[in-house]
């Protein structure tokens, strides 16, 4: 019984680790749990904060306590900027992608 449990645990562990890492290959890089260290460009989205026509641009590094590349939360960060900066619109830009978040 114990032996079967151990063999089963080993098999499941290895399969899960393989599947998680393989799945990470297909996600936006860098992806968590994918061991993708240094294989991607330094993550540096920027955020244009539009307040009454006045536009301020801030970088992810300026905002984050610890700017991890695995975090792909441009919309969430834009919404946080809406709340904290009193903006009308926040536009997040990362590489070739852009998200325009109107502030309510």
């Amino acid at each position: 019984m114990r032996r079967r449990f151990i063999v089963g645990f080993m098999a499941i562990y290895l399969i899960v680790q393989l599947l998680v890492s393989v799945a990470a290959l297909g996600r936006t890089r860098p992806a968590r749990f994918g061991w993708q260290m240094y294989s991607y460009p330094p993550y540096s989205p920027s955020f244009s904060i539009d307040s009454g026509g006045e536009v301020t641009v801030v970088s992810y590094e300026d905002l984050a306590v610890r700017a991890r590349g695995e975090i792909h939360e441009e919309v969430a960060i834009a919404r946080w900027l809406c709340e904290t900066r009193g903006a009308d619109t926040v536009t997040a830009t990362r590489h070739n992608e852009q998200w325009i978040v109107p502030c309510e």
Binding site: M10, Y13, L14, Q17, L18, S21, R29, W35, Y38, S39
Partner: peptide, 23 residues
Amino acid sequence: WPVVLMCTQVSLVYLFAAATKLN
């Protein structure tokens, strides 16, 4: 047997780190 898993984990780190760099 846990050590086998530890060593396999380390191997997977190396191999997937290499795989993601093949671009």
